[in-house]
């Protein structure tokens, strides 16, 4: 299963779904990451994690662990 974690720096991916349960999942969706939206991976932080992505025109930091919940095409 291909997730946001696997998307290389500089690439853009389209979201297919969010796995996981509960508050974190809801928070991710509330922030705009829902099925069909494009996410662009801008950079990785100094020690490799978290990653900084652009979604819906703004920047968001996500941990690799959390990014693994975001299924992409």
């Amino acid at each position: 299963m291909h997730t946001l974690k696997d998307v290389p720096c500089g690439a853009t991916a389209r979201v297919r779904g969010i796995s996981g349960t509960g508050a974190l999942r809801r928070r991710i969706m509330d922030m705009g990451i829902v099925k069909g939206v494009d996410i662009h991976v801008r950079k990785l932080a100094p020690l490799g994690d978290p990653l900084e992505v652009t979604v819906r025109g703004y920047e968001l930091s996500l941990r690799k662990g959390d990014a693994a919940l975001i299924e992409v095409e």
Binding site: I28, M31, Y58, E59, L60, S61, G65
Partner: peptide
Amino acid sequence: LFAGDITPFVMEL
């Protein structure tokens, strides 16, 4: 006393 998971970190810049 404290072992547990790490908070999800979703933060806007």
